[in-house]
């Protein structure tokens, strides 16, 4: 009885998951392979003429290689902001977890506030302009760091709590200075959570649409998510190119997913058990 029921459940689950979660991606791939005319039908038909490669070349070269610039911009943005995030968040998490001071309450409050409060957009633009950082890639990098610090700090603090304080003290006895303790003892031990942090924040920042939209306007400044948005208005009828673009920008997260699924899940579920 229960054997039959289990198989029945499995079959239904697999079918439903296929329809709900897989078919939309198949649709993306199929449309990306079609020509302009057939893609405009928006239907679920088999491509009459496979021209994925032509579409890719088209998308990349269009508007003066905009997509290539965008990939470069997005890569710089992601790598730079994640690097800063890792170092700065680990430093805060370390001292915050190790040292009990009267500031800790305020800092914890600010971390929660950062997770909850939506950024004040126009005042930020006003400030960035005053500092000459508006519509500049390094300005956006600092913005991404500011917005994602709270989550990274929480990850690090939770993990540092599992590293015994004895290790710091043994290192001090061995003659380590504060920077030695942090960079030679703590940072290497943080490696697992650093991988998680890198992966989760990379995906988030690579996929970020809103912040580049507000803070990095202007030609040549596009990030990959914005190219999609631009194509959407520009190629109202060129669905094959639009979906080729979607396909291309889905590849980096897919690669990350294939190699780092475990770390991502560890990152996003941190805190789920304790609340």
């Amino acid at each position: 009885m229960s054997l039959i029921r289990r198989h029945w459940l499995s079959v239904v689950a697999i079918l439903v998951s296929f329809v709900v979660f897989v078919i939309p991606f198949i649709f993306i791939v199929l449309t990306a392979m079609k020509d302009k005319r057939q893609s405009a039908l928006l239907d679920f038909s088999w491509p009459e003429k496979f021209q994925l490669w032509e579409n890719i070349v088209d998308v990349i070269t269009t508007r003066n290689w905009q997509l290539l610039t965008a990939f470069i911009n997005s890569t710089i943005l992601t790598v730079a902001s994640v690097t800063l995030l890792v170092v700065f968040a680990a430093m805060v998490g370390f001292v915050l977890q190790r040292r009990r001071t009267r500031w800790n309450g305020l800092i914890n409050f600010l971390i929660l506030a950062g997770l909850m409060i939506p950024p004040a957009i126009v005042p930020t633009i006003w400030l960035l302009q005053a500092m000459g950082l508006f519509a500049k890639l390094h300005g956006l990098i600092l913005i991404e760091v500011a917005y994602h610090l709270p989550f990274s700090i929480l990850l690090y603090r939770a993990f540092i709590a599992t590293i015994p304080k004895d290790l710091d003290e043994a290192a001090i006895i061995d003659g380590a200075r504060p920077l030695d303790v942090f960079f030679r003892i703590i940072m290497p031990l943080l490696w697992p959570v650093t991988v998680t942090n890198i992966v989760v924040q990379s995906v988030t920042i690579f996929n970020d649409f809103t912040n580049p939209l507000y803070y990095l306007p202007g030609r040549g400044n596009e990030t990959v998510q914005l190219t999609l948005y631009n194509f959407q208005s520009q190629f109202n009828t060129s669905y094959h190119l639009l979906f080729t673009n979607i396909l291309l920008i889905t590849i980096p997260p897919l690669i990350v997913f294939l190699f780092f699924n475990r770390q991502i899940v560890a990152g996003v579920t941190a805190g789920a058990v304790k609340g």
Binding site: V92, F94, L110, P123, L127, L142, A146
Partner: peptide, 17 residues
């Protein structure tokens, strides 16, 4: 060790808020 994070967060998040 708080300083780099505090400056970035303070200037780009708290001040605008």
């Amino acid at each position: 060790f708080f300083l780099p994070a505090a400056i970035i967060y303070g200037v780009l998040f708290l001040v605008p808020t």
